[in-house]
Amino acid sequence: MRKVISAIAAVIILSSTAAFAQKDAQAKTILGQVSKKYKAYATVKTDFRMTMASPQNETQGSQSGTLVSQSGTGKYRVTLFSPAGKSAVDQEIVSDGKTQWTYQKRDNEVQVTNADHTATGLNPATLFTMYEKGYKYLYTGDQKQGGNTYQAIELSPTAASPAIFKVKLLIDKTAKLIYSAQLFDKNGNRYTYLLSNFVPNPKVAGDYFTFSTKAHPGVNVEDLR
Rank of each mutant, 00 (worst) to 15 (best):
K3L: 13
V4I: 14
S6Y: 09
I8Y: 11
V11T: 05
T17I: 15
A18Q: 08
A18D: 10
A18S: 13
D24K: 14
Q26F: 11
A27H: 02
A27K: 00
K28F: 11
L31S: 04
L31Y: 01
Q33M: 14
Q33P: 06
K37M: 13
K37R: 06
A40C: 04
Y41S: 10
T43D: 05
K45F: 13
D47E: 11
M50C: 10
M50P: 07
M52P: 07
M52V: 08
A53Y: 15
A53W: 12
P55T: 01
Q60E: 15
Q60A: 09
G61Q: 07
S62Q: 13
S62K: 02
T66A: 10
S69T: 06
Q70D: 09
T73G: 02
K75T: 03
K75D: 12
K75A: 13
R77F: 11
T79M: 06
T79C: 05
L80H: 00
F81Q: 02
S87F: 10
S87P: 04
A88E: 09
A88T: 12
D90W: 02
Q91G: 03
V94F: 06
S95K: 03
G97A: 09
K98F: 08
T99I: 03
W101H: 00
T102I: 06
Y103F: 07
Q104F: 15
Q104P: 08
K105T: 02
K105C: 09
K105Q: 14
R106Q: 12
N108I: 07
Q111W: 07
V112P: 00
V112F: 04
N114H: 14
A115N: 01
T118Q: 13
P124L: 06
F128T: 05
Y131E: 10
E132D: 13
E132L: 12
E132K: 10
K133A: 12
G134S: 11
L138T: 07
Y139D: 08
Y139F: 15
T140Q: 12
T140K: 07
Q143F: 10
Q143P: 09
G146S: 03
G146E: 02
Y150W: 03
A152I: 12
I153M: 09
E154Q: 15
P157V: 00
T158R: 07
A160G: 06
P162S: 03
P162M: 08
F165L: 09
V167E: 13
K173H: 12
K173C: 11
A175G: 04
L177F: 08
I178E: 05
S180H: 01
A181R: 04
Q182L: 13
K186C: 07
N187L: 14
N187A: 14
R190C: 10
L194R: 06
P200S: 03
P202S: 01
K203D: 11
V204C: 07
A205G: 13
G206Y: 06
D207N: 06
Y208E: 05
Y208D: 08
T210F: 12
H216F: 08
G218E: 05
G218F: 00
N220H: 11
V221K: 01
E222K: 14
